[in-house]
Every structure is written in structure tokens, then in C-alpha cells.
Amino acid sequence: MSNLINIIFNGHDRQIEAGMTVEQLLKDAAINGRFVAIELNGEILPRDQRNQRAIQARDVIEVVTLVGGG
């Protein structure tokens, strides 16, 4: 039985399975976790919590990386 929840992921609505961890979400989105930082509900999520913290409904997740800039 899959229970879907709604979150906001990098500014877009997204439906994911309840209980998914951030680590799993990154994998699902084909994001290399090595080069990113994650903000969960306005707070930086420590790296070691990525595969511990289960995502909850209405979570706001920002995944950021370094890009070219002056």
C-alpha cells in the first residue's frame, strides 16, 4: 500500500511516497548527493541525517549546488 504525500521540492509540487528519506528522494531525482546541500523547512539538513530523516507532508525541500558565478 503506497501512501502518497505532497511536498514542495525545489519550488515545485511533488508527490512522493510517505516515509521516503531525503537520500532516497535524491536518488529518485538522479541528483548526486556529493555536490549539494539540502535545506529542509528552512534549516540545513546535516549530511548524516539524509538517510535518517523521513520526509513528511508539506515539507519544503531545497536542494542547492554550486554553479558558475562572479
Binding site: 521540492f9 519550488g11 538522479a30 541528483i31 549546488t65 554550486l66 554553479v67 558565478g69
Partner: peptide, 19 residues
């Protein structure tokens, strides 16, 4: 080298990361 901090692209990923 200076770099900027921006959202990781999700839908129209274009190749490799800057790093």
C-alpha cells in the same frame, strides 16, 4: 574561483555539475 549557489536542476539537467 567564485561560484554561485543555486537550485540543482531537476527536470532539464544539462550534463555535468560545475564541480
Amino acid at each position: 574561483v567564485t561560484v554561485a549557489v543555486r537550485r540543482e536542476r531537476l527536470y532539464d539537467r544539462q550534463g555535468k555539475n560545475l564541480l
